[in-house]
Design a binder for these strands. Structure first.
Lengths: 242, 242
DNA sequence: GTGCGAGGTGTACACTTGTCTACATCCGCA
DNA sequence: TGCGGATGTAGACAAGTGTACACCTCGCAC
């Protein structure tokens, strides 16, 4: 039984020709989860019905619902990571302008357009993948420990990607990489909230966009200030903490 | 029918003598939701069973599950708001030390112990009310629009309380109240994540505590910097945004 | 006393759910 | 050609679900 399930990994192969049952089920689950309820609380029969398949077919592809959830999350996470990185790289042109090191104030002033573009980029992306995003956030605090863990890892990866890109795009010699990662994590998490607001309140989109930009800039300012203006005190405190 | 339900508002009265059915149901729901699944996906019979009551009794008190959810959230939110405010006031003594205005750096240095204490306070509180907190976060991104809305309002109120307390405890003439509220909202939301980490990873508690403190200090630094060091540019940008 | 309404129980019905076993296809391969 | 495995279908089962109706039992006003 286990062999069957693991052996069926067409997903990683070239291209699935006829959108085989497995994918139908995953799509159905995603659709239902986005519109109706949480992934973990979906019914086996419900998903099968939505996919136009026999309930029993579920067993052929997935052992349990967590199994399905993990598969869906894997797909979504891959798409999201790749999409975000790709777009960040595409906008690296404008970022190059800000790569000449200077004092904190100068760095920040140059960072502003980059931040603005990055925020727009993320919000665009979640708008495009609204279903996936909503489900992801839902399950991040959902009831299944397995899915929660998986999604937490996804978020950590997103933050790591972001930190890496930032360090590559505009070297910040004043800050140690660990702090950058921590800030990236905070930004990613906060963007989760902003994104939900953005999706749920279309009339307030500009305002929310502005809030997000201001938030990131504040955090950057603060990071540079605590790392530069008072290097001794700040870093000593950080060191003592751990 | 509606009259019956609304007329039975002992909860707001002095003290419920025999912990009448309504409260038994609410406690049962909370317990189940915290341990098993989401509030909205609970079964009517399940809750009744846990409460030691007949399934039909549910109808005497609540029209639907959203109804129950709202009642539970109301209770929790009240307790949380009151608890946090009370503790903040209790610790206002040490805050008074920081109330003499000075330059940004000085304000921040004085704010550090206050932030440290506030973070400890929040984390203590969520540890004490773990069940309620976990359920609250779950439903904040859950499937029921009614509960989501209610919880979003709760969060907004928490942020507003916090902003008010901060402004009262340590007047920050450099910053307009609106910015304070925005920052408070960001802090509250971020603390939601930190709190979940804190509860789920007991071994990392000190580190998480430190992360939270650093986050808030950074944000404060950034806020003061963008509000003070470049008052013209920053405020113009903020004004243009809205 | 009588009536009454709120809180609570018991039983019943139609329906959905997860899971099991058995059967039907299809496709690669010897 | 035949075989075996992967994929999908059909039917049946016990268990659980929401809801409806009838009934009981207090406390209380008249």
């Amino acid at each position: 039984m286990k062999k069957n399930l693991e052996g069926y990994s067409k997903r990683t192969g070239a291209a699935v020709a006829h959108r085989s049952g497995r994918q139908k089920l995953m799509e159905a689950a995603l659709q239902l989860a986005a519109s109706t309820r949480s992934l973990a609380s979906l019914g086996l029969r419900e998903v099968a019905r939505q996919a136009g398949l026999n309930p029993n077919t579920f067993y052929r592809h997935f052992r349990s619902f967590d199994d399905l959830g993990l598969a869906v999350i894997d797909d979504l996470a891959g798409e999201l990571r790749q999409g975000l990185r790709e777009r960040r790289r595409r906008s690296a042109v404008s970022a190059a302008l800000a790569s000449r090191p200077g004092d904190a104030a100068q760095v920040l002033r140059q960072a502003e357009p980059v931040v603005r573009e990055s925020v727009a980029l993320v919000l665009d992306f979640v708008t495009e993948h609204q279903q996936a995003y909503v489900v992801g956030i839902r399950e991040l605090h959902g009831t299944s420990p397995v899915l929660r863990d998986a999604l937490r890892r996804v978020f950590d990866q997103l933050a790591a990607d972001m930190a890496e890109d930032v360090l590559e795009m505009m070297p910040l010699p004043q800050m140690d990489p660990q702090s950058v990662r921590e800030i990236a994590a905070a930004v990613i998490r906060q963007m989760a909230f902003f994104s939900m607001d953005y999706l749920e309140q279309p009339s307030q989109r500009e305002a929310i966009c502005g809030q997000a930009e201001r938030f990131i800039l504040m955090l950057l300012w603060g990071a540079l200030a605590t790392g530069v203006a008072q290097p001794g005190r700040a870093q000593a405190r950080v060191a003592n903490r751990s």
